Computed example of a mutant assay.
Amino acid sequence: MTASTTGAPAIRVQGLEKAYGKISVLRGVDFEVERGSIFALLGSNGAGKTTAVRILSTLLTPDAGEASINGFDLATEPAQVRESISLTGQFAAVDEILTGRENLVLVARLRHLESPGAVADDLLERFVLTEAGDRRAATYSGGMRRRLDIAMSLIGDPPIVFLDEPTTGLDPERRIEVWRAIEKLAASGTTVLLTTQYLDEAEELADRIAILHQGRIIVAGSLDELTRLLPPATVEYVEKQPSLEDIFLTLVGDRGPEDTSGAPAAEPGKK
Results as ranks from 00 to 15, higher is better:
Thr2Ser: 13
Thr5Met: 12
Ala8Pro: 04
Ala8Val: 04
Ile11Gln: 03
Lys18Asn: 02
Tyr20Val: 05
Tyr20Trp: 08
Ile23Arg: 11
Ile23Met: 05
Leu26Pro: 00
Arg27His: 02
Gly28Val: 06
Asp30Leu: 01
Phe31Ser: 03
Val33Trp: 04
Glu34Thr: 10
Ile38Gly: 05
Gly46Ala: 12
Ala47Glu: 07
Thr50Pro: 00
Ala52Trp: 03
Ala52Val: 07
Ile55Leu: 04
Leu56Asn: 10
Ser57Gly: 07
Ser57Lys: 09
Leu60Trp: 03
Thr61Asp: 06
Pro62Ala: 13
Glu66Thr: 14
Ala67Trp: 04
Ala67Thr: 06
Ala67Cys: 09
Ile69Val: 13
Gly71Lys: 06
Gly71Leu: 06
Phe72Glu: 09
Leu74Met: 05
Glu77Val: 00
Val81Phe: 07
Glu83Gln: 13
Ser84Glu: 07
Ile85Cys: 01
Ser86Phe: 01
Ser86Arg: 02
Leu87Pro: 05
Gln90His: 09
Phe91Ser: 08
Ala92Ile: 01
Asp95His: 08
Glu96Val: 11
Thr99Gln: 13
Asn103Cys: 11
Leu113Ala: 11
Leu113Val: 10
Glu114Arg: 15
Ser115Trp: 11
Val119Thr: 14
Ala120Arg: 11
Asp121Asn: 13
Leu124Met: 14
Leu124His: 09
Glu131Asp: 13
Gly133Glu: 08
Arg135Glu: 09
Arg135Thr: 04
Arg136Val: 10
Ala138Trp: 02
Thr139Cys: 02
Tyr140Met: 06
Gly143Asn: 03
Arg145Trp: 02
Arg147Tyr: 03
Leu148Phe: 05
Leu148Asn: 05
Asp149Ser: 11
Asp149His: 05
Ile150Tyr: 06
Ile155Ser: 10
Asp157Gly: 01
Phe162Ile: 09
Pro166Thr: 01
Thr168Cys: 00
Glu173Trp: 04
Arg175Ile: 08
Arg175Cys: 03
Ile176Pro: 00
Glu177Pro: 03
Glu183Cys: 00
Lys184Gln: 14
Thr190Cys: 12
Leu193Phe: 04
Leu193His: 00
Leu194Ile: 07
Gln197His: 15
Glu203Val: 08
Glu204Thr: 14
Ala206Trp: 02
Asp207Gly: 12
Ala210Ser: 08
Ile211Glu: 02
His213Lys: 15
Gln214His: 14
Ala220Cys: 12
Gly221Pro: 01
Leu226His: 05
Thr227Asp: 08
Leu229Gly: 15
Leu229Met: 14
Pro231Leu: 13
Pro232Val: 10
Gln241Ala: 14
Gln241Phe: 12
Ser243Met: 02
Glu245Trp: 05
Ile247Ala: 11
Phe248Cys: 01
Pro257Lys: 14
Pro257Met: 13
Ala263Tyr: 14
Ala263Leu: 15
Ala265Phe: 10
Gly269Val: 09
Lys271Pro: 08
Lys271Leu: 15
